[in-house]
Design a protein around this nucleic acid. Sequence first.
RNA 1: GUCUCCUUCGUCUAGUGGUUUAGGACACCGCCCUUUCACGGCGGCAACACGGGUUCAAAUCCCGUAGGAGAUGCCA
Length: 465
Amino acid sequence: MPIRVRFAPSPTGVLHIGSVRTALFNWLFARHNGGEFLLRIEDTDKLRSTYENTKLIFEILEWLCIDWDGNPVIQSERLERHKEVAFELVNLGKAYYCYCSSEELALKKEKALKSGMQYKYDGTCREKIGKIEGKTPVIRLKTNFDGDTTVHDMVQGEVTVKNSQLDDLVLLRSDGSPTYMLSVVVDDHDMDITHVIRGDDHLTNTFRQLQIYEACGWKAPDFGHIPLIYGPDGAKLSKRHGAASARDYQGLGYLPETIFNYLLRLGWSHGDDEIISRMDAIRWFDFDNVGKSPSRFDMMKLQNLNAHYIKERDNKSLLDYIIPFLGCEISDIQQGNILKGMNSLKEREKTAVGLAMSARIYISAPDTFDEPCQKYSSKIHLSLLEKVVHIIDEMDPLVEESLCNSVKLLAEKNNIKLVEIAQAMRGALCGKLTSPSVFEIIEILEKEESIKRIRSFINHFETRF
RNA sequence: GUCUCCUUCGUCUAGUGGUUUAGGACACCGCCCUUUCACGGCGGCAACACGGGUUCAAAUCCCGUAGGAGAUGCCA
């Protein structure tokens, strides 16, 4: 039987980066084994599910090139089927109507907790037969409490739970809607899912779901529960840690290939390999090398990886990538200039946001000169800049190397270190003291713009004297 | 409380009884390169949670303890 897996996010919140990893592992498992990767939107919680969140799931998966087979299954469209199964189980005597009110149960639960007892549904309605008119029941599964259940988890290994630990879970709510437990089992079965790969938080749910499979007489799929992702403090990764949703990382300027590689390495390894291509990931992925322990999200490592992938991307594709981050329209000439300077720009930036910021030097002259720049605005510096302007003006053709040599000569003649002139030039051209080579910038900006910027720096500070 | 899972440098991890003075990566520190910031190169710091077993031999197997996480919903 060919392998069929699914990614089943719920659109009740923005897609979590941990969910993205679950999707990735499912996808890799399918692609590695030549199986199918299906998508199911679990939108049965109508109140909290939104169209935006659903759209986001598609967008993020597409962004990461995690493609799914066939059309996504929309869980809410399958409500009738879920109900049908619930009623069938009642007819089969495997489930029953329960008329206990949530208030009653809450009370019992509170009491049990107070006395330090384990709370379980006490089975009040278990042996009652039939319906009571005028009351809306829930449907509960008649759990088999005998013996124990063992799952052979692809990640966690053998896990055994005593069935007596379980209780009669609700399959259908009093409003007639199916619970998550019922829906997943029915859908996974109907979709012919062979392997359920999901977050660790579902491990104990598995034993409840296995009871449903049993009651329906269905063969259960294999399971793989991958550990969750935590924040730097060891608690579940959330907004509190700065960024928890996949969209956040996109907005922070991380490339899809970075997220792909980082998430893959978080909890999975292939010897000492750190940089892993999509092709190799598909070739190498297996569950033997998925770790059992939860991992913390490390921003610094993510950044380092991103820097790597920025350097690896070709310049044109990087330019296209950063345009939305620029927040302004740019002309063809400006685009051309950024492209010319891209080699130097990209080797010093860690994110698309940073890259866009530094690319601004090719879009417009600085409108302010930051504090450190002003150190290079003394009379001496300004007079040297005048000379630099002269050099630029005279030079034809204006090329980086000869310009550099001329300025070096100028520094020697004036018995001053090159860094003094270079930094003043940097301040004038960029408004800040970090940038690629000033000589490269001038070559790209060309004579007129370079001189204009340096002159404007001189004028700006000259007024002080 | 009960049940389940987890535990190698600060972090991600390699390691599946002897090849290990426990390897790599990020971070950190130092040096080199250098017109700044980066990049890059070289070097350094740094870990088997604890206690018992099993064994000629244990990070690796077993049992406890401690710590952490998850589940315990008419949420998913």
